[in-house]
Design a protein around this nucleic acid. Sequence first.
DNA 1: GTCGAACTTCGATGGCCGTCGTACTATTTC
DNA 2: GAAATAGTACGACGGCCATCGAAGTTCGAC
Lengths: 108, 108
Amino acid sequence: MPPTVAQHTVLPQPAREEIRIEQVLQALGDPVRLLFVRALARSPEGVACGAVPLPVTKSTRTHHLRILREAGVISMRAEGTRRLSSLRREDLDARYPGLLDGVLNASH
Amino acid sequence: MPPTVAQHTVLPQPAREEIRIEQVLQALGDPVRLLFVRALARSPEGVACGAVPLPVTKSTRTHHLRILREAGVISMRAEGTRRLSSLRREDLDARYPGLLDGVLNASH
DNA sequence: GTCGAACTTCGATGGCCGTCGTACTATTTC
DNA sequence: GAAATAGTACGACGGCCATCGAAGTTCGAC
């Protein structure tokens, strides 16, 4: 097989204008995903999927991460065998000012 | 049966401090409920359940309204045979500043 | 006090979605 | 290249939830 030059390092995700509020809310409405988003908020430089303690198996993790990514909440870039996820703060703030902060600042 | 003096005019709902972000997000994540919330935002004085055009039957409406009420998103008071719903703007803004505005200002 | 209007309640149903295990792929390391 | 690591893909399964229809309740109007 040819050397397959530089696979996309960033996994497919909606452009800022394509983000739909309904999908974002649905994505954030799950307790596991909310946990992950909160963890991401604490480390802006990106986090590997496995680095966050979550009460689910690997495959379920993958599932949740895809939902968050396809909703436009997080961005994922491949780095070696790992995928580093990070919050799309700028995009979300631009599109729904205050929403993300409102979610993250929630006490419990 | 005794005359059952003065039924509660406001239907049971969580106090401000009891509102949980996860429940709010889940409540707002449904397309029908989001439609209703947007309609409420346009008429702050309260709206009768049946007065909002929604693509579901009466009983489904009741279901959605209860979820919104129990999540702390809306308040309902009985007035005659009708139940007037209104957004709990103050409570939501106090607890999750920016969240509601972020949701309501979403373009589509 | 009957009728109608406005909701609620109570099953029943169907579909989606969160979960898991197993198998697979890609990448680094030895 | 073999092994180990990190994550994805694919089915399968179970439970929850949005939906409905039909029957019940509560209030206002006549």
